[in-house]
Simulated scan of single mutants.
Amino acid sequence: MLIELVAAVALGFAAAGLALLARRAVPSLPRFTVPAVAGLAMIGFGIWSEYTWFDRTSATLPDGIEVISAPAESAVWRPWSYVTPLVLRFMAVDLVGARRNEAAPGQVIVEAYVIGRHGPRARIPVLLDCVGLRRADIADGIDFAPDGTIAEGDWRPAAPDDPLIAAVCGTS
Results as ranks from 00 to 15, higher is better:
18 L>Y: 11
95 L>V: 09
109 I>D: 10
18 L>I: 10
123 R>H: 00
134 R>W: 01
115 I>V: 05
76 V>A: 12
38 A>L: 03
111 E>I: 10
56 R>Q: 12
50 E>S: 03
37 V>S: 11
36 A>T: 12
125 P>A: 05
137 D>W: 03
116 G>W: 01
125 P>W: 04
35 P>Y: 15
21 L>F: 01
26 V>Y: 14
42 M>L: 13
118 H>S: 09
9 V>L: 15
99 R>P: 07
55 D>W: 01
105 P>G: 02
126 V>W: 03
59 A>E: 04
121 R>Q: 03
59 A>H: 03
54 F>Q: 07
96 V>I: 11
57 T>F: 06
26 V>G: 07
134 R>T: 01
57 T>R: 09
114 V>R: 00
25 A>T: 14
64 G>Y: 06
22 A>H: 10
97 G>W: 05
32 F>P: 03
17 G>T: 15
2 L>D: 15
103 A>P: 09
119 G>R: 00
6 V>A: 12
18 L>N: 02
19 A>N: 10
49 S>R: 10
72 A>F: 07
48 W>E: 06
127 L>A: 02
132 G>W: 05
75 A>V: 05
90 F>S: 00
54 F>Y: 15
64 G>Q: 07
85 P>W: 08
24 R>E: 11
43 I>C: 09
24 R>Q: 14
36 A>E: 05
124 I>A: 00
105 P>N: 08
124 I>K: 08
39 G>S: 10
102 E>H: 05
127 L>R: 04
61 L>R: 06
74 S>C: 00
38 A>I: 02
84 T>W: 11
64 G>P: 07
16 A>V: 12
126 V>E: 00
62 P>H: 06
94 D>T: 01
2 L>Y: 12
39 G>D: 03
27 P>C: 04
92 A>F: 02
84 T>Q: 13
103 A>F: 02
58 S>V: 14
136 A>P: 08
121 R>D: 02
88 L>T: 15
109 I>L: 15
92 A>T: 07
138 I>L: 14
25 A>K: 14
134 R>L: 02
93 V>K: 04
85 P>K: 02
54 F>N: 12
124 I>C: 01
31 R>C: 09
